[in-house]
């Protein structure tokens, strides 16, 4: 198919802001030398050799693990939510979705900071707990707090795509299923859920990717005690100044995300006959 003329600005945009930076990262990843001096670069795999040692692999493992758990929680919470909202009447539905979106108008960093005061030792939640005579809980600076931060911040990215697919399902299909004698459970498992899979796939991708690469949440709510891969990358760029190692970790992160997306899109293709979802 011939590209339309109107597509040129977008191609220019993609070229400048996506393709060129990606190649720069690739170039940095496979070279070594003083990051600020191009003439000192030489082709090298040393960054990757350094990464594939137990210490960094452990961090990668922890990141994958936390991102995976938070994606599962988001799906478990988000799907029923999206389903319930989509069943509401038009007006109520829009208000409910608006409620989901309004917090996102505030800066992500501020919302995460807010959790610091909620979860802190003398924070709001512990204040309530001690008021009713219970012992204060250790809520912050652990993996649970990081998970909470991820789920809280990324849940809308799960709910919105699933919701927008669910509201578009043709009511006639459900009626037809009823006519053919399906009960409500069968309607859900055989009609609604299979049709909503593209939304689920998009939701999973949109939660998993930011959860995998976050460094702010683990830094603020995890108290920097549990490095994630995002923290290691940030450290290389901001403090150590080794852009080569930082870039190669970014490449490894990207490869991981691509693999997960490839796996999830497989499910998608079976239903859609290819070309659906993000891929």
């Amino acid at each position: 198919m011939r590209m339309k003329r109107t597509a040129y600005p977008y191609i220019l945009w993609i070229g400048i802001f996506i393709v060129i930076p990606l190649f720069l990262i690739l170039y940095f990843a496979f070279t070594a030398g003083n990051s600020q001096d191009f003439s000192s670069f030489e082709i090298s795999l040393s960054n990757f050799r350094r990464f594939f040692t137990p210490i960094y692999l452990k961090v990668l493992g922890r990141s994958v693990n936390l991102a995976f758990i938070s994606t599962i929680i988001c799906l478990a919470l988000g799907y029923p939510m999206a389903y319930i909202i989509s069943k509401e009447r038009h007006k109520k539905r829009n208000i409910m979705i608006l409620m989901f979106v309004i917090p996102m108008w505030m800066n992500f960093l501020l919302r995460t900071y807010a959790w610091l005061t909620l979860l802190g030792r003398n924070g709001f939640i512990n204040f309530i707990i001690t008021k009713i005579g219970l012992k204060p809980l250790d809520l912050i600076f652990n993996d649970k707090a990081v998970l909470l931060g991820m789920v809280y911040n990324f849940l809308p990215f799960m709910v919105l795509p699933i919701y927008s697919i669910l509201v578009k399902i043709d009511k006639n299909l459900i009626e037809a299923a009823e006519d053919l004698g399906a009960n409500r459970f069968e309607i859900f498992t055989k009609v609604i859920f299979p049709l909503s899979i593209p939304g689920v796939i998009t939701g999973i991708t949109m939660v998993f990717i930011p959860a995998m690469s976050t460094f702010i949440i683990s830094s603020l709510l995890g108290g920097n005690k549990y490095n994630l891969i995002g923290n290691l990358i940030e450290q290389q760029f901001r403090w150590t100044g080794d852009w080569h190692f930082g870039s190669s970790m970014s490449i490894i992160l990207m490869v991981f995300i691509l693999i997960t997306m490839a796996i999830t899109s497989k499910f998608d293709k079976e239903k859609e006959g290819g070309g659906g979802g993000l891929w």
Binding site: I55, Y56, K58, V59, K225, N227, Q235, Q236, T240, D242
Partner: peptide, 16 residues
């Protein structure tokens, strides 16, 4: 020696 600092710091914060 900044490279050593980085390695040490990563090892401190990435342990269990």
């Amino acid at each position: 020696i900044v490279v050593e600092y980085d390695r040490i710091w990563t090892e401190v914060l990435s342990g269990e």
